[in-house]
Lab assay of single mutants.
Amino acid sequence: MAAGGDHGSPDSYRSPLASRYASPEMCFVFSDRYKFRTWRQLWLWLAEAEQTLGLPITDEQIQEMKSNLENIDFKMAAEEEKRLRHDVMAHVHTFGHCCPKAAGIIHLGATSCYVGDNTDLIILRNALDLLLPKLARVISRLADFAKERASLPTLGFTHFQPAQLTTVGKRCCLWIQDLCMDLQNLKRVRDDLRFRGVKGTTGTQASFLQLFEGDDHKVEQLDKMVTEKAGFKRAFIITGQTYTRKVDIEVLSVLASLGASVHKICTDIRLLANLKEMEEPFEKQQIGSSAMPYKRNPMRSERCCSLARHLMTLVMDPLQTASVQWFERTLDDSANRRICLAEAFLTADTILNTLQNISEGLVVYPKVIERRIRQELPFMATENIIMAMVKAGGSRQDCHEKIRVLSQQAASVVKQEGGDNDLIERIQVDAYFSPIHSQLDHLLDPSSFTGRASQQVQRFLEEEVYPLLKPYESVMKVKAELCL
C-alpha cells in the first residue's frame, strides 16, 4: 500500500493539533497551500530580480507567473513527485505547466533550498508574528487579574506546605514575570531571523556568478533584492546548502521555554482548584465526569500541561538535527523538520489560546482563602504575639514557653481530632496574655502579614508589564474561544 493518505478522510490519521486544537490561522501558515504558494512567490521574486539585473526574462513571463501564483494543481504535483521522487522539481514542473512561456526560467540558477529553506524562514517569521500578540493578550488578562487582587491576602506555599502570606495578585505576578520573559525572547528570536537568500547549491553562489558572467556586484544585488522582497532586513552571508540548523534550535528553545512557563502556571491553577481557592472557567453544560456528576475538573489547565510537556520535548529534535548536518548538509534534517517545526508552533498556539481562555474567566473564592488563612495564621502570628507581650512588660522566655504549650495543644486538636485551630481562643482565655487581649485582632490582621506584596504588584505592572504590552494595544480586544 502506498504511503500517505487522504487526510480529510475519517479513515486516515490526522494530527489532533490540526484537527482538534490549533487555530485556523496557525494551521494555514503550515498548510501545503501556504507552503507551495510561497515557493511560487519566491520563484517570481527571483525572476523579477534577475530581470532587473539584466537576464533575458520578459515582462510577459513575469506576468504569467504572477497570474498563476494561486493556480496550484495539487493532484498534478503529487503525481509528479511520485514520478520524480523530488518535491521541488515536482512543483517546478507543475508551475511550468500553467506558465508555459515562463517554464524555462522558473528556478533559474537556484537549488531546492532556495524555495525550501527560504519558505521555512518566512513561515517561522509569520508563525512567530501570530504567537506574539496571543502571548501579549494572556499577559494582559493576567495583569488585569493581578491588579484587581493585588491586596487580597492568601496563604503562600513553599514545598506545598503553608508559608508566609502573600497576595493573590502577587502570586499571579510570578506567572506574568515568566511570560514577559517569554514574550521578550519570542520577539528577540523573531527579529534575529535572517533570510537564507540566493546562495546556490553549497552556499557559494557559483551558479549565479556564472549567470551574471562573473559580476560579483550583481550577485550581491540579486541576494539583497530577493531578501528585501521577502520582507527581511538581512540575509546570511555564510550558508551551506541550507541555512544553519542552529536557527531551528533557537526558535524551538524559546517555544519550549514558553511551554515550561505555561505548565507551571496551569499546575498552580490545578492545585488551587483542589484547594477550592480558584477555578478555571466551567461552562453551564460542561460535564466533569461521566460517573461523578459533582466533579469540576480543571480540564483546560490539564490540557495545557499535557501539550506543554510535548512542546518542551520537541527542542531535542533540532538539537540532534543540527549535530548531524555533515559538511554542507545531509538530508537527516528533512523529514524531522517537516514534523517538529509545525508541531512546535501548533502546540504553542494551542496552549496560548487555551491559557487566554482560562485567564479571561478565572474565578476566585475569597471566603475559602480566608478560612485557610484562619487555619494557619495563628501559628504564624506567634512571633508577633511574643513581641507584643514583651512590649507590655512580659518575659520573652516565659511567653515563648506559654505559646509553645498552647500551640501544641491547638495542633493536637487540628491533627488528632480534625478540629479547627483554636490557638487564639486559648490565648484569649489565658490570664497571662490579658495585657494584649485587646491587640489580638490587630495582630491577626492578614494584611499585616503580606509585606509589600501589593506595592510590588503595582510597581511591576507599571514599570515592566504595561510598557512591554504597549506595541500590542491594537490587538488586545480579541477574545479566545474554545470549541473543545
Rank of each mutant, 00 (worst) to 15 (best):
R188I: 13
H107R: 02
Y21M: 08
A2H: 11
K367T: 01
E220S: 09
P16E: 05
V219Q: 11
L69S: 09
P471I: 12
I339H: 12
D6N: 10
R338T: 01
H91D: 01
S407R: 00
D430N: 07
P100K: 06
R149E: 10
S448N: 11
N71V: 11
E280R: 01
M312S: 05
S23P: 10
G156V: 02
H107L: 03
H91G: 07
S19A: 14
I105K: 09
A143E: 01
S289D: 08
G231N: 12
Y472T: 04
D182W: 05
P281I: 06
L444D: 05
L121Q: 09
F28P: 05
E360T: 13
I358R: 01
G54F: 10
L469N: 12
E383N: 01
P10K: 12
A322S: 08
I369Y: 04
Q456L: 14
V219H: 07
Q177Y: 05
S289P: 06
I287P: 00
G203Q: 01
E462R: 13
L55F: 04
F379T: 05
E213V: 09
T166I: 12
F282K: 05
E50S: 10
M292V: 02
L142C: 09
E425F: 10
H91T: 05
S140N: 15
Q286P: 00
Q455T: 10
T111E: 01
T382P: 05
Y34G: 15
G240M: 07
L258Q: 11
Q41E: 11
H93L: 08
Q439E: 13
Y466H: 15
D223V: 05
L165E: 01
R20G: 05
H93E: 09
T119N: 00
W175I: 00
M316Q: 13
F28W: 06
I339V: 08
I373S: 04
E417F: 08
T382Y: 05
Q439Y: 02
F36N: 14
T58F: 06
T313H: 07
Y432W: 07
C98K: 07
E25A: 12
L272H: 07
L331A: 03
E80T: 12
V390H: 10
Y21L: 11
R137I: 09
L271G: 07
M476L: 14
L314A: 08
A3N: 14
T52A: 09
R296Q: 15
A335E: 01
L84D: 13
A206N: 08
F157I: 03
R190N: 04
A335M: 15
S23C: 00
G4R: 13
A103I: 10
S289Q: 04
H86P: 01
A230Q: 00
M26H: 10
Q210E: 15
I62M: 06
Y21P: 13
V368N: 03
F379V: 04
L275H: 02
V138S: 09
I106D: 05
A308K: 01
P100L: 11
M76S: 10
D420A: 03
F30Y: 14
R83Y: 12
V364L: 13
A260W: 00
A392K: 07
K218Q: 06
R459Y: 11
S434F: 15
Q161P: 00
V414E: 03
E80S: 08
L53I: 10
A410D: 14
T239M: 05
R234G: 12
V478I: 07
L443K: 02
D192E: 13
P10R: 14
R338E: 02
V92P: 00
A127V: 10
V198C: 14
D178K: 02
A453I: 15
S448E: 10
